[in-house]
Nucleic acid binder design. Sequence first.
DNA 1: CGGCTGATTGAAATGCATCAAACAAAGTGG
DNA 2: CCACTTTGTTTGATGCATTTCAATCAGCCG
Lengths: 235, 235
Amino acid sequence: MGINNNSESTDDIDLSCFPFFKSLTKEECDILNFEKKCIASQRGTIVYEEGCRLSGFYFITRGIVKIYKTGIDGKEQIIKFANKGDIFGYRSLLSEETACSTSKVIEDAILYHIPYKILLNLVEANPLFSLDILRIACDELKEANECITYFGLKTVRERLAEVLLLLHKNFKLDTDQRIQISLTREELANTVGTATEVIIRFLSEFKREKLIDLKGRKIKILNLNELKKVAKLTD
Amino acid sequence: MGINNNSESTDDIDLSCFPFFKSLTKEECDILNFEKKCIASQRGTIVYEEGCRLSGFYFITRGIVKIYKTGIDGKEQIIKFANKGDIFGYRSLLSEETACSTSKVIEDAILYHIPYKILLNLVEANPLFSLDILRIACDELKEANECITYFGLKTVRERLAEVLLLLHKNFKLDTDQRIQISLTREELANTVGTATEVIIRFLSEFKREKLIDLKGRKIKILNLNELKKVAKLTD
DNA sequence: CGGCTGATTGAAATGCATCAAACAAAGTGG
DNA sequence: CCACTTTGTTTGATGCATTTCAATCAGCCG
């Protein structure tokens, strides 16, 4: 693991059924479906690395990919988890720069690679699609700004509570109401921006306070409202 | 001060000379210039506040505006400084949400208000402009991601060094090579995400180490390379 | 079984936040 | 024009949150 472990398949799912492509015409969908390349990737696979020049962006229909940057001392900062229906890798593409983050599969995933040229053609030819992707970028920007704010104004304890709430909101729950995404303590730490040990301590503190329940990496939120108070959220 | 102190003027500068509008046709420029509204705003003016519904976005041709969010305890987190040639307020507009940040003039500014409808028309009618604004959003996203990373991985001392370098890069220098933007210690603190006193201590530490020179709020960088080392920057 | 990675706990060190107080500068009103 | 208020800057001292180091434990895989 940790090494490329892809298998290019000829999986011919029609991407037009996903909301992201809703504004495309029939012809555009045909081109898209023809040019896309399906990549089934196992946990640990690195999709692209910081410094790479990408040839296209990625659309994910299954699994989870973490997007992160690496600091000088080798510590990671996770910026985002991409899952079903998300796109990633488009930012550096459109800015015409090398990737400034790394993306790694943390839950076996199905990815579709879509060439840059197709993206450009669509943006230039289809104003509605153009607006769609612009709105996606704006939404990401909003989340990033909220993230900056929470880093600047909140303590580690508050940030952990907020991250748990975000994971709860953005990822499916299993039959036992546990958040399906399975992160190591270290990955949680790299999201919150702290040390692994600190995460462990606060998690067990939350558990003691009956805010959450832990079963290995599977977390269940027991008291949503109280956790929101800990996170100092208004809504 | 602190209260609205605008004066709507009929200033008829042709906006097409700014790079942001470079992709517009002659006709589009005419409409833009007709629909824009010039607002001369003094230091302290609040352009819009968190929770407002905006009717358009802003283009700035002079002065500086700080964009920030306010925490529960009233503390501010500054997200961005907008100056000449920048746009702001477009994000919440395109996401069709109320503003999630406040913008306040910190250096007497000339702003142009451009109605949402014009923005939408341009994005839908002009693919090149559409791509331009998409790239701007992507660039902002890149900066935001770097900001998240520096919050997550760096100490306050390192962050302050990085912010000083960013200000040095993004704002003009005066005849004495000092960074023209004039921030209070508190505003610096609200950018770095720490307390005013901490900023003061590190600033005088940097001064003692001959990395910077201080003359009130005007900062001059004396040793760029060494400051980059402090900020743990690679480039 | 032994070696690996990840999780956990404890103790010590430190970076930062907070509180308090003094000072400087700038604007306000008598 | 001077006392007064206000706002911003500075310094010191203290306490707390978080980091770091060290050691142990649990689980997994070949």
